[in-house]
Design a protein around this nucleic acid. Structure first.
Length: 476
RNA sequence: GUCCCCAUCGUCUAGUGGCCAAGGACACCGCCCUUUCACGGCGGCGACGGGGGUUCGACUCCCCCUGGGGACGCCA
């Protein structure tokens, strides 16, 4: 049997974390078995489905690198197929007309709930005999649930058994003649020859209903795998209030797609003690045998750690490309940045957790002039430091090769001459160059900055110290 | 309420009856490295929800309880 998996989101919002993991596992399984991964958009609810959402889902998938082999298919375009299958069920006596209105059903459900009874359809239209009198009344088509029970084997959860008496006669065709979810899913999965249905375990109860439909339609059952849910820190189902849940938001926050992929893979699945997986490794090692049964809490900090890891691992050229949009977002000229970024990126990648933060800490390389942080300025831009700045400005300005080796020679000479330790020299210089007390190594920073800018900033510091009152805007 | 699923450090997890006085990772704390901040290295804190069985032996198997999650739509 060839492996065919699918991801079938409804286009009612962005691709969220939970959906992304479901898609990832389906994709991995297909790739591992040389099978096909199919994308299907479940837009039978015309009210809530939007093209923007479809696009957002497509964008999210693409960003994560989860490419599909077939589709996207749209349920809204498959009406003929559903109609044909409905007809079959009708002919085989699996359906009956229900004339109950939505209002009546809602009221009865409410009533049942109050009485503590299961809020299930009571089947009152099942054996109506007055259907002829109802000729002009709108009706929905319900599925006649047979006696017995549904037992199925889940690749993750094992054997699951549900009594048919727990399942209500669900509506397959609405009174406006549109088919409902459970029916479409079955028809689609069967006609698309899906071999493995991989989805969240919130669908387990649907699976029972769907198996009934598979049987009634005479379709062969696929293999099911129900992934445990992803929860927020408070153990409630992950939702907006737990922070960013949309995949694309992580892109905007400066995450690398593979960091998210690695994180999501490891949330619920494991391979011994290994934490870091390349895509190829995931494809090779993934197995439902090692997917846990319990719901997992989404931990943003571990994601951040992985992101920092992958930033460190990324080649400078790649990081440059990725970082550029974030710099432009901050008002840096793209062309200028691009020319100098590769050198700069290598000074920053060791300490950045995400690209957004990285862009912010790169900002001083591109600004016309630096603004001094108050504490830094008060501590380091003082009269007594003047000789250091003047010395460096002159000696560094005279360097032919402005690289870390040569720069270090100058610093060593200065330290010798003035009998200072590096710490006493580096911090004031850092403030002059960056405006703050935190930055990459001072020699690297100088080299990445370039001679011209370095000298100009040293001069600015000298001017500032000599004439602080000329800068009223910075004084209190 | 009914049904279904689940249960190892705060979190993600390893563990498939003896290898476990329970291992790794994130986070947290400390030390080291160091020109700052990080990175990195070393160390520390920290868990088998409870009760019954089964067994020579249970984190591992069974039952009950408790706790958590999910589903009960003419939504998907």
């Amino acid at each position: 049997m060839s492996v065919r998996t699918r991801f079938a989101p409804s286009p009612t919002g962005y691709l969220h974390i939970g959906g992304a993991r479901t898609a990832l596992f389906s994709w991995l399984y297909a790739r591992q078995h040389g099978g096909k991964f199919i994308l299907r958009i479940e837009d039978t609810d015309a009210e809530r489905s939007t093209d923007e959402s479809t696009q957002a889902i497509l964008d999210g998938m693409e960003w994560l690198g989860l490419d599909h082999d077939e589709g996207p298919f749209f349920q809204s375009e498959r009406g003929d197929i559903y109609r044909a299958e409905i007809e079959k069920l009708q002919n085989s006596g699996h359906l009956y007309r229900c004339y109950c209105t939505t209002e009546e059903l809602t009221a009865r459900r409410e009533e049942a709930r109050i009485k503590g009874l299961p809020p299930k359809y009571d089947g009152r239209c099942k054996s109506r005999t007055d259907t002829l009198d109802m000729a002009n009344a709108p009706y929905a088509l319900r599925f006649r649930v047979p006696e017995g029970s549904v037992i199925f084997k889940d690749m993750i959860k094992g054997s699951i058994k549900i009594q048919n008496s727990e399942i209500e006669d669900m509506i397959l065709l609405r009174s406006d003649s549109t088919p409902t979810y459970n029916f479409c899913v079955v028809v689609d999965d069967a006609t698309m020859s899906i071999s493995h249905v991989i989805r969240g375990d919130d669908h387990i109860s649907n699976t029972a209903k769907q198996i009934l439909l598979y049987n009634a339609l005479g379709f062969e059952l696929p293999v099911f795998a129900h992934l445990p849910m992803i929860l927020g820190a408070d153990k409630a189902r992950l939702s907006k209030r737990h922070g960013a849940t949309s995949v694309i938001a992580y892109k905007a926050e400066g995450f690398l797609p593979h960091a998210l992929v690695n994180y999501l893979a490891r949330l619920g699945w494991s391979h011994g003690d290994q934490e870091i997986f390349s895509t190829d490794e995931l494809i090779k090692l993934f197995s439902f045998d090692n997917v846990g049964k319990a719901a997992g809490v989404f931990n943003p900090e571990k994601l951040l750690w992985l992101n920092a890891h992958y930033i460190k691992e990324s080649p400078n050229s790649e990081l440059t490309t990725l970082l550029l949009p974030f710099l432009q977002e901050l008002g840096v000229d793209g062309a200028e940045a691009n020319a100098r970024l590769e050198a700069i990126v290598s000074t920053l990648k060791e300490r950045a957790k995400d690209l957004k933060e990285m862009a912010e800490s790169a900002l001083f390389y591109f600004k016309e002039s630096v603004e001094y942080e108050e504490k830094a300025r008060n501590k380091f831009l003082k009269e007594e430091k003047l000789p250091i700045f003047i010395y460096l400005r002159d000696k560094l300005g005279a360097l032919a090769n402005f690289n870390t080796t040569e720069i270090e020679v100058v610093f060593n000479a200065l330290m010798e001459e003035m009998d200072l330790k590096l710490g006493k020299v580096a911090q004031p210089v850092r403030v002059a160059l960056t405006g703050g007390t935190v930055s990459p190594g001072i020699f690297e920073t100088l080299e990445a900055m370039g001679k011209e800018m370095a000298i100009s900033r040293l001069n600015a510091a000298i001017t500032y110290i000599e004439n602080p009152h000329g800068r009223d805007d910075m004084m209190y």
